[in-house]
Simulated assay, not measured.
Amino acid sequence: MSVKPAPAPAPFAGPFALATLSAPGGPAFPALVTADGLVVDLRVALDDDRLTVRRLLEGWPEVLPRLRALAEDSDVGRGVLAEFRVHAPVEPRQVFQSGANYRQHVIDLHVAHRAAGDDRPEDERRAEAAEIMDRRADEDLPYVFLGLPSAVTGPYDDVVLPSWAEKPDWELELAAVIGRPAHGVRVEEALEHVAGYTIANDLTDRAAVFRRDMPQIGTDWLRSKNAPGFTPLGPWIVPAESVADPGDLRLVLKLNGDTMQDESTKDMIFNVARMVSYASQSARLLPGDLVLTGSPAGNGMHWGRLLRDGDVMDASITGLGAQRTRCVAEVTS
């Protein structure tokens, strides 16, 4: 099941974006989508039946000029976007997730997760959280952990809420898509390894974040973030050259029409370049991999309202389009 997108294609920056689409009953294929909602099947245009978006990204420096030319070539056969199903735009091999990267978001979480016996006034605890964030920024210490590709789903697919998830929450995020392998790259060169950007909603079961049986071992990201479908992705990959400043984009998430998150990437503690560089110091980032850059203030813990059966989330980021997903309770036998 899936929730249908808005009747008109959501606008994105630049003349084209990459997508993974399928016709009814047909296989998924890599597509170039134009700003006016037309589709070029890249298997046909580039004469490669085995082509995927990830394979395109593996040759990104050479592929990008060809995509620019295809977007301008009126003689290339084109379909209409409304005729196709939109899938997650890429199947990543690795998903790097950033925690505690929006200042106001972390302060809100710090207040919401009051420790037992902590009776201090809220303003005192907010001041403590702000001091922690300032110290992290001064010490230049991002926080990155790994997610599973199997959690990725399409931008209009239903999200199944597991029966065991007590506090499922939303987290709208800007995702950088890697286009060149990156290992040990400096901040100054990190964006050269980013092919483009897309939208991710990094769902989290707040009740499962911390291990209750063994609090000394800390967080359990496997359990809390990696249920199937917990990372709606897309709809498009917008080339980095079409995104003027990833540090100045507006993220908006609405729940059943009510605005919950509305913030700029300016509130990031560590920018995209720093997050890519930091992840690359430990791991080798590969074409098609995702670097999620954290979520702004306004999650369910802040509002005291978590996700439940029937909820519809509309998420958008400046220049990257929009996604719509519906929450469906898991049916257990």
Rank of each mutant, 00 (worst) to 15 (best):
P287Y: 01
A227C: 11
P7D: 07
T318L: 08
P7E: 11
A283G: 02
V3G: 14
G77H: 15
A28F: 03
R206K: 02
E72I: 08
R180N: 05
S333H: 15
A129Q: 11
L233P: 04
K4L: 15
L70F: 10
G25N: 08
D47W: 12
V39E: 03
C327S: 11
G37W: 01
A315T: 08
A244D: 13
A69L: 12
I217E: 12
G298C: 04
T259Q: 07
A100P: 07
V185Y: 10
D169L: 11
A207R: 05
Y197D: 06
D202R: 03
E131W: 14
E62R: 13
A71F: 03
M1Y: 14
V291P: 05
V63A: 08
R78T: 07
V53M: 05
H302S: 11
L222M: 12
L81P: 07
A82H: 12
L64P: 04
D108N: 11
D123Y: 13
L286I: 12
E330F: 00
A283C: 14
Q323G: 01
R85P: 11
R180Y: 07
R43Q: 10
S163G: 14
R103Y: 07
G99V: 03
A207S: 06
L109W: 14
M275Q: 14
N256D: 04
E131G: 14
F16V: 07
E62C: 10
G14K: 08
E122L: 08
K266R: 14
R186A: 15
H87R: 02
P65G: 02
E166L: 12
E192K: 06
H302D: 01
T153M: 05
G14H: 04
G179V: 09
A273K: 00
L109K: 13
P228A: 09
A200C: 11
D36N: 13
S163A: 15
V152E: 08
G25T: 05
D311N: 03
H302G: 03
D41A: 00
S264V: 09
V44K: 15
G37H: 09
V33P: 00
L21A: 10
D205L: 02
E131D: 15
A13F: 04
L161C: 03
F29S: 01
I217G: 12
D314A: 11
N299K: 13
L146S: 08
V160D: 09
P15N: 15
R43E: 05
T52C: 09
W303C: 04
I317R: 03
L307T: 10
D138I: 09
L32E: 07
V90H: 05
R284T: 15
G179N: 10
D41P: 01
G196F: 00
A240K: 09
H87V: 02
A322C: 11
T332R: 15
V291T: 01
N271P: 13
P65D: 06
D248L: 06
P9S: 11
R136F: 07
I107D: 00
A151C: 07
D169E: 06
N101P: 01
S74Y: 13
D41L: 00
V106T: 14
V328G: 06
V144L: 10
P92G: 10
D48P: 01
R250V: 12
E188G: 05
D118S: 02
A207C: 05
P142W: 05
D108R: 04
A100E: 11
A13C: 03
